[in-house]
Design a binder for these strands. Structure first.
Lengths: 174, 174
DNA sequence: CAAGTGTGATTGACACGTCTACTATCCGCC
DNA sequence: GGCGGATAGTAGACGTGTCAATCACACTTG
């Protein structure tokens, strides 16, 4: 069990494929995150009738001035593209969780406004949702594991954004 | 840096909500995994025209005896429910990646068979796909981080399955 | 063998995400 | 003022995932 890697062989540059161990960790990582995501989403749906998307939108609106936000502003705040938000907000409007209003200062624009129903639904959802995050995630890990999970996530994200925004460089170097 | 938690206060039982730090790690964890998932999926789609679901199905079939599998067997092998598999396989059949055949030994049953087209698509996809996993995941992490990621994933999954299959106990204990 | 139950698989309805296209408006500039 | 490009938002098409309903066949049992 001790041998960390079989990398005593000279690696020619970086053309190497993942080893079986590395691939196993990848699958554990990605599948577990997926399991957790659906587990927490199912809990939120079951106990509060909200999807994760609903929760994210309601959270942003409940923290916004006047419980309202311009559509684009909301989209960039939660990291969605406008189309996704528009579709989702359409579904939420049918359920009376939010309301769309015209924007006074820009006739193209729309404001998404939190309704009473939406605010109530959000208020009822926070405690169960946070509790589920605690029981399913936080409680499962030691303090060291939690710190490691955060470290890994930040490292991965930094690597991802770093390599993503240099496509020109990658080509130009050739 | 040193103060791991503010938990010098006595915690009354386990009614505690996640702290801001814990919540931040949760969001880093779940959002990063989501980013990685879509990043790798987009790469596979762009370079090979396959979705992650396609890849999973094709991988299972390419490893199966005679490149064919009973539908239920395939579903449980890859951890999907039958409905999901049926929908997906329907779409894959339209693209000629697989074929459905009647089962000789059980007239209810169906066999999913890998087509030539599907086998070729899978063969072309493995190297780019594994390379993407390496560059986006494995290469981003140190050996210690990789080990920690695996450890965290296994711990989380164990905790999840453990608490999931004792719902009666949780209720009954009260 | 007939009735009843369980199982294999499909289907339809709906929520969700992404991409592309389109409309309406705003803004800078001549 | 009016032209042209940028921006805000919506809409359609399609792949994907989940749930409940359905259908056909298999199996068990009287």
């Amino acid at each position: 069990m001790g041998e960390m890697t079989a990398n005593t062989r000279p690696q020619r540059r970086k053309r190497r494929m993942p080893t079986a161990d590395e691939l196993r960790v990848w699958r554990e990582y990605i599948e577990t995150a997926e399991l957790l995501r659906t587990h927490v989403a199912a809990s939120l749906q079951r106990e509060c009738g909200l999807s994760t998307g609903d929760y994210v939108v309601l959270l942003a609106l409940s923290e916004a001035d006047g419980h309202r936000m311009r559509s684009s502003e909301l989209a960039s705040h939660i990291g969605w593209d406008r189309s996704r938000l528009s579709h989702h907000v359409g579904r939420m409007e049918r359920r009376d969780l939010i309301r769309r209003e015209e924007c006074a200062t820009d006739n193209r624009g729309a404001e998404i406004v939190l309704t009473r129903t939406g605010a109530d639904a959000f208020d009822r959802s926070t405690v169960p949702h946070l509790r589920e995050i605690r029981t399913a995630f936080v409680d499962a890990l030691t303090a060291e594991q939690l710190a490691a999970a955060g470290d890994v996530a930040r490292t991965l994200r930094a690597h991802l954004t770093e390599t993503d925004q240099l496509p020109a460089n990658g080509r130009a170097g050739r």
